[in-house]
């Protein structure tokens, strides 16, 4: 049906795309402050305004980082930390999704499980550390367990909340088209809870990095956290800062990868739709 309709005219003007220049400009703005700090700090140390022992200048941190990387130590520590986060995240996320789905879908399960989980959540997770060491020894298991606990709660809360808040009106659409329970779960519930679940996973991953530091501080012979303690014990401020920078980069990278991998799943949500 040909329609010289009003709405076709409405959709004609294309939304203005953000150009490479716009993006570059924005990134440049964000870089001003850190660059100023780096340069200021560096020159303060060089001109003798500040002492470099407790506050090593950026150049020295860079050298330390480079040396660590060149000797292969950095990679070993990064790997150790990454494996712990990955394992803890996997266990915590799977358990959190399972528990969240169960309590979100079945009221009885919610009444049984949720009060206990909420009570456990009220315990600051680091309080478990002594108990975990007592139970699980001082090797990898307690570390992974601690990280998993840290990841579990945000994922559980996020998934349960997402399921509880699925729009009943959309479920009725599924009923009108006579979907079976399984189809309803796959075609309506799952896509509806996906965005909130991914957000919860992101929060969980962030907490995973938070807890890996705690876990490694409780005693480790490798890992970025070990570099922190080692640096503290031998007054190597440059090593501490190098480890902190490595943590920041690693955390950001992990988050970026998670977002990139899950991006296609929530493309319908993008506020500015530029693809297609």
């Amino acid at each position: 049906m040909a329609e010289p309709g009003a709405d076709d005219a409405k959709s004609a003007p294309k939304p203005r795309r953000e150009t490479v220049w716009d993006q570059g400009g924005r990134v440049a703005l964000g870089l001003i402050l850190p660059l100023a700090l780096v340069i200021g700090w560096e020159s303060a140390v060089h001109t003798g305004l500040a002492q470099g022992r407790l506050m090593p200048p950026p150049s020295r941190i860079a050298v330390t980082l480079y040396d660590l990387a060149a000797s292969g130590d950095l990679w070993m520590h990064v790997q150790a930390t990454l494996v712990r986060v990955a394992l803890g995240f996997a266990f915590g996320a799977v358990a959190g999704i399972a528990a969240g789905a169960l309590t979100g879908a079945l009221p009885t399960a919610r009444h049984i499980l949720d009060p206990t989980l909420q009570a456990l959540r009220a315990v600051p997770s680091l309080a478990w550390v002594p108990l975990f060491i007592l139970w699980l020894g001082i090797l990898e298991t307690p570390k992974v367990a601690l990280i998993a606990v840290g990841v579990f709660f945000p994922v559980y809360i996020g998934v349960a909340g997402a399921i509880a808040s699925v729009d009943r009106k959309l479920i009725e659409v599924g009923r009108i088209f006579r979907l079976s329970t399984l189809q309803l779960a796959r075609r309506i519930l799952l896509p509806a809870v996906l965005p909130a679940t991914l957000t919860a996973l992101r929060t969980g991953l962030g907490l995973g990095f938070l807890f890996v530091v705690a876990a490694e501080l409780m005693g480790a012979s490798e890992g970025l956290g070990y570099l922190l303690i080692d640096g503290q014990q031998f007054s190597k401020a440059d090593q501490i800062l190098a480890a902190i920078i490595a943590f920041a980069i690693l955390g950001k990278l992990a988050d970026t990868v998670l977002v990139a991998v899950t991006r296609p799943l929530t493309r319908w949500q993008d506020t500015a739709r530029e693809t297609l």
Binding site: K169, L170, R178, L194, W268, Q269
Partner: peptide, 21 residues
């Protein structure tokens, strides 16, 4: 007595699934 293939319903609101085009 339950949704029937011969009966369709248009709700007051569009109720489109936002994740489908």
């Amino acid at each position: 007595a339950q949704p029937h293939p011969g009966v369709g319903l248009v709700f007051q609101e569009p109720r489109l699934l936002p994740w489908l085009d």
